[in-house]
Design a protein around this nucleic acid. Structure first.
Lengths: 152, 152
DNA sequence: ATAATCCCGACTATTTAACTCGGATATTCT
DNA sequence: AGAATATCCGAGTTAAATAGTCGGGATTAT
């Protein structure tokens, strides 16, 4: 059970843009380099994100991409939903079992997939790009302190 | 983002066995029919579950499968882990970015995949086969009441 | 003996993931 | 104007995983 790289790459790229929000547009090449992703492949993914309105593009020399909105308004879940498709764990319609409960249109396992889906949604819809940036900066601070102490 | 059918089929089959726990062994053919799964395909899956000690098999005529343990001791997570493999959402080692935080061995997105994994684990490790059976029986009761009222 | 059933390994077809590429279009800089 | 830099678009490729199929052997109740 695993996520595809689409979602991973998409979140990484968007996070990279979030780190530079408010600055000049970032060309894809830079993002791909920094995040260790194939540039050509990322091109496809960011194309999707652009069409969905999550990033804006500037063509031509000095062009690149910027976030279409404030990082605090973009949730990880938004990105994953678009790149991975909605979480459709099961297309479960199980009605063959004609027994004492025959009238029940019910798949015993369906509830489990629903619970899993909800749990994932809760997580990814609660984390914004800004949260990720904050976490990163916090870690940097801690690290600086650590280096400082080491050199004392 | 979706689960493979392996996990779905496996849970369905185990649930079927749980419904008949304590009775005679159930042949694979019955399970496959009732749950709407290819018998040959299910054969592979249940083979894995047998080797891992989750079900016991009886060969020969009147043979079949039974749960190796009480349904309350078998968690949905156990089944999924074996059939889908552990949840390895990302094999994220991202250390290329040499900037002001260069000493930090840290992947910005890693925390997200960890959180997702934990959320899924929490769900599937909290649901036993017995829970599923209870849910089903509860639903049957409700349904009976409903039919009763309708006929009044 | 025979029918039912598990057991095992190999085979195949389909789909998906993960890239790769060629060339068109737009923009800036010199 | 022209070169360089980028986005934009669609198509092609490769490799792996998924899902399913099959043949035949071993075991056991009737």
């Amino acid at each position: 059970m695993k996520l595809s790289t689409k979602g991973q790459y998409g979140v990484k790229a968007m996070y990279d843009l979030a780190l530079h929000y408010g600055e000049d547009p970032i060309p894809l090449k830079k993002i791909a380099e920094r995040q260790g992703i194939s540039e050509y492949y990322l091109e496809q993914l960011i194309g999707i994100l652009r069409r969905e309105g999550f990033v804006k593009s500037m063509r031509g020399s000095q062009g690149g991409y910027i976030l279409a909105d404030d990082p605090s308004n973009i949730m990880v879940g938004d990105i994953l939903n678009i790149l991975e498709g909605p979480i459709e764990i099961s297309d479960c319609i199980d009605d063959r079992e004609v027994n004492e409960c025959s009238k029940v249109n019910y798949c015993a396992t369906r509830l489990i997939w629903v619970k899993i889906k909800n749990a994932i949604d809760d997580v990814v819809n609660s984390i914004s790009l800004q949260d990720m940036v904050n976490d990163y900066k916090l870690l940097c601070e801690k690290n600086k302190d650590l280096i400082k102490k080491e050199s004392e």
